[in-house]
Simulated assay, not measured.
Amino acid sequence: MKHAPFIAVEGPIGAGKTTLATMLAEELQLPIVKEIVEENPFIDKFYQSMDDWSFQLEMFFLCNRYKQLKETANEFTEKGKPVVSDYHIYKNLIFSERTLKGIERDKYRQIYHVLTDDLPKPNLIIYIKADLNTLLKRIAKRGRAFEEGIDQGYLQQLIEDYDAAMAELADSPSKPHIITIDGNAVDFVENQEHYEEISSQIKELMI
Rank of each mutant, 00 (worst) to 15 (best):
Ala4Gly: 00
Ala4Trp: 00
Ala4Met: 06
Pro5His: 08
Pro5Cys: 10
Phe6Val: 09
Ile7Tyr: 00
Val9Ser: 03
Glu10Trp: 01
Glu10Val: 13
Gly11Tyr: 01
Gly11Asn: 00
Ile13Ala: 12
Gly14Ala: 14
Ala15Phe: 02
Thr19Phe: 08
Thr19Lys: 08
Thr22Gly: 14
Thr22Glu: 14
Met23Tyr: 13
Met23Gln: 15
Leu24Ile: 13
Leu24Asp: 02
Leu24Phe: 04
Ala25Thr: 04
Ala25Val: 00
Glu26Trp: 00
Glu27Ser: 11
Leu28Arg: 09
Leu30Ala: 13
Pro31Thr: 10
Val33Ala: 09
Lys34Val: 10
Glu35Gly: 10
Ile36Glu: 11
Val37Gln: 07
Val37Pro: 03
Glu38Ile: 03
Asn40Leu: 08
Asn40His: 04
Asn40Lys: 05
Pro41His: 09
Pro41Met: 13
Pro41Thr: 07
Ile43His: 01
Ile43Lys: 02
Asp44Trp: 01
Lys45Val: 02
Phe46Trp: 05
Tyr47Gln: 01
Asp51Pro: 01
Asp52Gly: 08
Asp52His: 11
Trp53His: 15
Ser54Phe: 05
Phe55Asp: 10
Glu58Pro: 09
Glu58Tyr: 06
Glu58Ala: 13
Met59Ile: 15
Phe60Thr: 02
Phe61Thr: 01
Phe61Met: 09
Leu62Trp: 05
Leu62Ser: 14
Leu62Tyr: 05
Cys63Met: 14
Arg65Val: 00
Arg65Cys: 00
Tyr66Ile: 07
Tyr66Asn: 15
Gln68Tyr: 00
Leu69Pro: 00
Lys70Ala: 10
Lys70Gly: 03
Glu71Trp: 04
Glu71Gly: 05
Glu71Ala: 12
Glu71Gln: 08
Glu71Leu: 09
Thr72Pro: 03
Ala73His: 01
Ala73Trp: 05
Ala73Leu: 04
Ala73Tyr: 01
Asn74Met: 11
Glu75Thr: 04
Glu75Asn: 04
Glu75Tyr: 00
Phe76Lys: 09
Phe76Glu: 07
Thr77Ser: 06
Lys79Leu: 09
Pro82Val: 11
Pro82Met: 12
Pro82Asn: 11
Pro82His: 09
Val83Glu: 04
Val84Tyr: 05
Asp86Pro: 06
Tyr87Gly: 09
Tyr87Glu: 13
Tyr87Cys: 12
His88Trp: 05
His88Glu: 13
His88Val: 09
Ile89Glu: 03
Tyr90Gln: 15
